[in-house]
Design a protein around this nucleic acid. Sequence first.
DNA 1: GACATTCTGCATCGATCGCTACATAAATGG
DNA 2: CCATTTATGTAGCGATCGATGCAGAATGTC
Lengths: 186, 186
Amino acid sequence: MRIFWIKGYEATSISDLTEVMGVGTTSLYAAFGSKDELYAEALRHYAANYENLVWGRFREATTVRDAVKAYLYDSAAAMTGSDCDLPRGCMATLGTVGSDGHAELAGLMRSTRAGAFDVLVSRLERAAEEGELPPALDIAKVGRFLQTVQSGMAIRARDGAETAELQSVAEIAMAGWDGFVSKAAD
Amino acid sequence: MRIFWIKGYEATSISDLTEVMGVGTTSLYAAFGSKDELYAEALRHYAANYENLVWGRFREATTVRDAVKAYLYDSAAAMTGSDCDLPRGCMATLGTVGSDGHAELAGLMRSTRAGAFDVLVSRLERAAEEGELPPALDIAKVGRFLQTVQSGMAIRARDGAETAELQSVAEIAMAGWDGFVSKAAD
DNA sequence: GACATTCTGCATCGATCGCTACATAAATGG
DNA sequence: CCATTTATGTAGCGATCGATGCAGAATGTC
């Protein structure tokens, strides 16, 4: 999975995979069927295993602001491998799959990314219903903003950005949150 | 160039290029030497021709806030092809080149991205010197934040985001700018 | 018109791509 | 202990990759 994460779909060859997995091509194809399915499986494994790094504190947070802050700060940490020795960036965000003959894979990745947005939005909606956020606040806008900042973090992480830098980004993004929320409360 | 822009380096084959350029492989290699050099030329052409779409109003703006705002809003517009029928996203930001045997290309792209950051920072520094920004403001942090938001826009644009969505992102990012700047002014 | 030079279309190079047939090794069941 | 099934390593499939050699067309010069 890590090699897909690092090199991406197109740039990773079956030879790379068999070498790093320590199995022959026969076993690989018996287990997964095709390169596409293997990538899909790797993506699912990625989402299942590292989801908690980004969303753990988000879910446990009591206030929506703490949740959003945790989302941004923990994304900054996870993407720069400060938790453990993980590859840089986010596999779901950066893993660009040429949509030529791989429409199915491209759709899977798109829906994976969309899932993160949905999680954000449903938390924001809950906060709005509970009166924690002003009713006038445009939830979708805020959700897209957060998603966009996090996506940008992934690119910066791939370019070698350190945790501190991305956390500074999160800090300013939270200033944007505060400003936008308080403006909607007027 | 557009095909490199859309499909990326790895996913674009020489056949694709000759077909869309209407020339044979011989002419292509006589003119550019290799796929790497052709991509580098395409990237330079991209930077030279579309630089103005993003940085035009930025340069002409009188206040630093207007410049930053123009940078974000015009990026949002350019990346969603609202100016003309350009491909989605930013070629320099999204064009991921597998750094296996293409270290030179990867470096070129990295420095292209770094150039945008430098432009931002130098404008911010000028504003700080002229007293338009508080001396306590961490210029690099702000520059990284703006770069990160714009990079995130590129990913959202590739995923089909419309101009209005990205401009909403820019709006909240500007709230972040205002909040962070006014905090540093205390 | 004859010649030299540049350019281009076609065929093809070796390498590698994703993938599979086949033979052998390991495991399982009686 | 043998027969049958399952798993793996090897060799190689057709296709395509980036890149070239070569011969003929186009162009320029006198």
